[in-house]
Design a protein around this nucleic acid. Structure first.
Lengths: 120, 120
DNA sequence: CGGCATCCCTTAGGATACTG
DNA sequence: CAGTATCCTAAGGGATGCCG
């Protein structure tokens, strides 16, 4: 049971995490700093428009930074900010839930390999 | 930094949490068991169609139960399952993030009142 | 390479009326 | 009361082409 007040408290975060690709995108950046093209390949088949949209929103919300390295060809890197990295416990909690509660109600608990989810 | 394997691991949960109203709905049920009409009022202005859709999906995923008490007028109650209640740490982590990281990058840390988020 | 600009389409979700 | 049935809108997202 939760206190009612937390409902509206969480709301601004839901706004940040909204969108089909936002969480997969953040997960990619948790693995490490990435360039536009690499994100696009990893998140295949995301469209460049959608990827740009999401990146801009996350940048605006202070979750990631965009660093431009001038030159030809262009080189742009996206990286999590402190605020962004602080989201880690949320993903850790999600991961833990999946491990402990399985993929579906019918299946039993899955035996999982040792997976390094924590901070490296 | 996270291990890459957790990305696909979390995927099934993202499927469950998907949708504009899913998290607010779950939060309502964390507060306590509720009837259809009460959920509808609390989540105003959700449409009955959407509420039904979301409830059906969550039921199918084993997150909530639907209990029908026969009679006129009808009486139906929705309640979190064990699997559903286990999502609590995720919301707790979200709540903690908002408290510690503020609503926006510009604003300083907000001073918050004592709020009971944990298990009651 | 890293995007915009454009156009298009699917679908989640809204509005409303009606029923067991 | 707790939905279902319809119809409809909006907006997220996809596909493609072009540009600095």
């Amino acid at each position: 049971m939760l206190d009612r007040s937390c409902i509206e408290a969480i709301d601004p975060l839901l706004e940040i995490l909204d969108g089909k690709w936002t969480l997969p995108l953040l997960l990619e950046l948790f693995v490490g700093t990435k360039r536009f093209g690499e994100l696009r390949r990893r998140l295949n088949p995301i469209s460049p428009k959608t990827l740009t949209d999401r990146l801009r929103v996350l940048e605006e919300k202070g979750i990631i930074t965009r660093t431009l390295y001038p030159g030809v060809p262009l080189h742009v890197e996206y990286e999590l900010t402190e605020r962004g990295r602080n989201l880690q416990p949320i993903f850790a909690a999600m991961w833990a839930w999946v491990q402990e509660n399985g993929l579906s109600p019918e299946r039993g608990t899955e035996i999982v390999e040792e997976i390094n989810f924590g901070l490296i």
